[in-house]
Amino acid sequence: MKTRYSFGGDEHIFVEVDEEMSLEAFFKSLSMTTAIREAGIDGITEICPANASFQVKFDPDVIAPDALMERLKGFEAAAENAEKTIDTRIIEMPVFYNDPWTHETLMRFRERHQDPKSTDLEYAARINGYASVESFIEAHSGAPWFVSMVGFVAGLPFTYQLVERSRQIQVPKYLRPRTDTPRLTVGYGGCFGCVYSVRGAGGYQMFGITPMPIYDPKGERSYLKDLFLFRPGDIIRFKPIDRETYDATLKEVEAGRYQPKIASVQFSLDAFNADPEGNNAKLLEALDG
């Protein structure tokens, strides 16, 4: 893992923890950003963790850029040796896979897709070696996901699945981005999943839709008072639901009664690496228990 530091103009320092994605790089980035936040350095105005990198925004009138750069580098060794354990939450997200709304949208933009004759799910299942869409959905929903970054637009989680690299799902983005994506589409591009927090343009493959809002610009929903549901480091379980459950959940959401299922968990990267499936089973138990 080779970590690289660069100034992003006179107000940002950009740190690429690693060129490639891995849970190790994500954890190192998270450890460094947590330690930097706790250090309370004067002049730092924002700390933004990303998948395998992070960014610090600062005021060069308060702290000299070179001095801040040296201080940030000083956090690297400790982050490498830090215990890779975090206290976090697991959140269940109901997903209606193969739903009519993303289906209508993907049909509308078929000429922008690698494989206009298949649906996004059929294409993703095939190129990842799954015999059927059903078995692909089983893999997608079978193991939990880390929220490895929140961004692009307000409240949008990027997710990375908690499985060995050989089992990671990978799909290219659309050849040309769509100009429309339904709000709350569960999408996929590269090795990352995402949930579109708002309706808009997008290039990720579309697998389904969740009835559970994750961003509320007015802060009116009880669990979205501070507007955003997800934070980097959260864990998500995608739970397949059918049309009937989707409609019923949507009713609860609209009546303002819906509460997401959330449990506190501890995640240890070493424990995960030693036994991915056993560790995942324990995470999911926390939700079901």
Binding site: G8, G9, H12, F14, E20, A50, A52, F152
Partner: peptide
């Protein structure tokens, strides 16, 4: 690998 974008980048 998707990263943060600085303002002005």
């Amino acid at each position: 690998v998707d990263s943060c974008y600085p303002y002005g980048s």
